[in-house]
Nucleic acid binder design. Sequence first.
DNA 1: TTGAAAGCGCTAACAT
DNA 2: ATGTTAGCGCTTTCAA
Lengths: 339, 339
Amino acid sequence: MKTKITLKQIAAQLGYSVSTVSKALTNSPEISDDTKRRISEFAQLSNYKPNSMAQNLKRQRTNTIGVIIPNILNPFFAKVFSGIEKYANAKGYNIITYISNESLNKEIQAIDLLSNGAVDGFILSIAEETQKRNEFSHFQEVIKDNMPIVMFDRISDSVDCDKVIVDDYDSAVHATQHLINMGCKRIALLTCEANISISQLRKNGYLDTLNVNNISIDDDLIITTNSIEEYDQKLENLIQNIKIDGIFALDEHASTLAMKLAVKKGFKIPEELQIVGFADGAWSRRLTPSLATISQHGPQIGEEAAKLLIDRIEKKSEKNVYKTTIIKTELRYRDSVKK
Amino acid sequence: MKTKITLKQIAAQLGYSVSTVSKALTNSPEISDDTKRRISEFAQLSNYKPNSMAQNLKRQRTNTIGVIIPNILNPFFAKVFSGIEKYANAKGYNIITYISNESLNKEIQAIDLLSNGAVDGFILSIAEETQKRNEFSHFQEVIKDNMPIVMFDRISDSVDCDKVIVDDYDSAVHATQHLINMGCKRIALLTCEANISISQLRKNGYLDTLNVNNISIDDDLIITTNSIEEYDQKLENLIQNIKIDGIFALDEHASTLAMKLAVKKGFKIPEELQIVGFADGAWSRRLTPSLATISQHGPQIGEEAAKLLIDRIEKKSEKNVYKTTIIKTELRYRDSVKK
DNA sequence: TTGAAAGCGCTAACAT
DNA sequence: ATGTTAGCGCTTTCAA
């Protein structure tokens, strides 16, 4: 960045004006082929690359999108991220990433730092704290400033913007119904991420499905907490002392610890106990027995979110009309359930 | 980004000159307290934020670093990434990410697209293809252009830059020696990522440790390949037909599949067979039995890399003298090994 | 076909 | 204490 050559220098070296050089390099028809050749040869040689800050400033566009993710260590978010990256790069966009670590403050800070011309729009999934506190004004303000946002997975109905979600309710219905079809009568519902919006949707799917099947709801079978410690302790108790024949777990930690404790306790899986959970597919396959999961198509979510945002940035979407895309999940029948 | 207010507009509104407004907002001592107050109040109200592209252009600095990662779905890279993000943000830097997907071309493209003033430097881990083809000129060129690079984990000796690595050789010695101490005589060495530099280091650690302990090297116990399919097939054969009492696996897939097949085959772990591998800690704990792994301190690697780069960008490092930081690994004794 | 000039939004040296 | 001016590197309109 020190020795970088500029248009001005090329112009000086070659005895042209800056504007001629600029036009020549963008292959403008105004310039003669001869000059173009000379100039581009020289540019090539001196390894000229147009300074993107200057271009951005001029164009009032950055071709960059801001991505705010609650936690990159969660494989689901990593997958969505890879989908965003893929689509955005293909369209010539860069990505600036912030990790909110589930913190409202960090989320606000990220939006603040990037909404000053550094990006053309945002893709984000709402931090847990933000959802818990119901504090969405930082989103609304930035949208009012004409900066488009696309939310995925963890969204808020109180924010008007494009969204990409998974059919959480349906997936829960599907999973619960499968367990019931396979003979489960006492299905536990487990989560240690009760705060986030999708957990509630999934829980509703579970409750409604029990109702539809005339299975009474037993609160002893339900653990919904926000604390991992509390979850671990309650689960230990549940597995030891409560009779169950099915488990439906709403997050990765809930799923895998349930599996581990059940194996330890000596449950025959899936004969005596069947388990379905939300968890990373690759790792779920590595467990013994492999864990049946709900596949959420993370990369596809990311690609769709990027598409929505870029269409919005490039004014291909209708103004003030926002889309919500629902990505279908699939139940992956693995060894932890009967078929 | 449409309705954004600029210095010029504030100046016009308030009847000051642009420079006065600029100075007032940066709290310059040249400006009277009174004016400062008026201007900053107005700025506040109109939600003014200095346009970062304009600032970058002026300052010839972006406060942005480019991160190129082979594969974000690998939890190790995700962890390093989170470390980079944390440190960089604390220092006021943004992060633009590219995922090379192990491809040389994508790596070259990323460097090309970002080395035009979009970032102040790079942090990267070399793509597999790049290491296989021994093609490092894209790094060297960008360094020659005064753009600093920090490499981590997968590095190349032929590139002069700051580096952060893990004591791969030592960690392999440590793991192998532990297996030997715990009574293993026939230790398999497994990897499906033979191409990358660190695999070779780890393999050497294994070989040397066997030698030191007067254990002869048996090629039947060694699977080193770059193809997952080939690995799966060879491993199946090894587990079925070759006598072993220990496994040392160099990557996540190699480790977990070995564990899974060994459990399936009915090995008593760790009594009859002990396993150590490189894999994500959180998930390794979730396996039954939990898998002993070598902890690589991903976040710390990321933080250190970011520190090296930012020091370099801010000229706090001595010119032309490059540092290599070695992060110590630790063996996590879990249920797959004796203690 | 080429060049001059203005301007994107900001900073800062240099007037006043 | 405030303003004028120049300039970061580029694009683009208008003039030659």
